[in-house]
Amino acid sequence: MNTVALTNDTMPLPTAKDVSAASSKDQPLDIQTIVEELKQASQPVGVPFLDDPKFYTRDVDVFYNQAKQAIFGVDLDIGKNEVIAMIGPSGCGKSTFLRCLNRMNDTIDGCKVTGQLLLDGEDIYGKDQDPVLLRARVGMVFQKPNPFPKSIYDNVAYGPRIHGLTTNRSELDDIVEDSLKKAGLFNEVKDRLQSPGTGLSGGQQQRLCIARAIAVSPEVILMDEPTSALDPIATATIEELIDELRQSFTICIVTHSMQQAARISQRTAYFHLGYLVEVNKTNTVFTNPQHRLTENYITGRFG
């Protein structure tokens, strides 16, 4: 945990924040106070807005079963070909927000999303937006590797098949090979494309899931803690992969590892209790956080 935190402690804190940071160390953090403070803030600290963003979200609220609100008024822009990391304590709503971006929340009963979410200016929750088409444009990789219990080939070919992206077998073969190469898995599995995808190791399975997601050439890939079930070596492989994929895709990644966020992302968003607290260049967030909640989190004072 603590390379980032250590660096941070050695850095001189900005004078403007001295007072609040000092007081936060002494005072116990009262949830009521925090919530009040977050409610008051009209927009996140830092640089939440961009010109010509890929995703444009304003005032997003998410409710589970009417009674429980998971996300409160999130305003965030996500740029093209950037890797944005979403961090925060468990239950802070970062995964929920991620799942709004391709309407995966639709599959949860009683989940209601309000506010404005645009993908390239198109309303994601608009009446004429088809979730099937949306998910072909916005792919997703999950926390636990979840390849289909089919062959490696069929796993990757599934998306192109259901969306009718190819007309013949050789085209499909090309897509499968290309996707596996992009996911850095091809050399390991080229001799056993017909063996079951579930027989691969955890890290390979996750790369298979990434290959499966990129096989339909999405514009965005959402990753929900993609390496939390993997060992450090597999994690490193995936992180390298994410860096390469940035050339062609926009990537939103939810992670619990702050080092990972620091290593792979250009921007970082910090969520707390369902509020988006701070968004900024990753470097800035980790070396010079503007909000005391962010600072407390990245220095390991809570979370």
Binding site: V132, F148, H163, A213
Partner: peptide
Amino acid sequence: SIRQAAYGMGA
């Protein structure tokens, strides 16, 4: 997770 994977692929 299997259903999620399929929905995530746009099935």
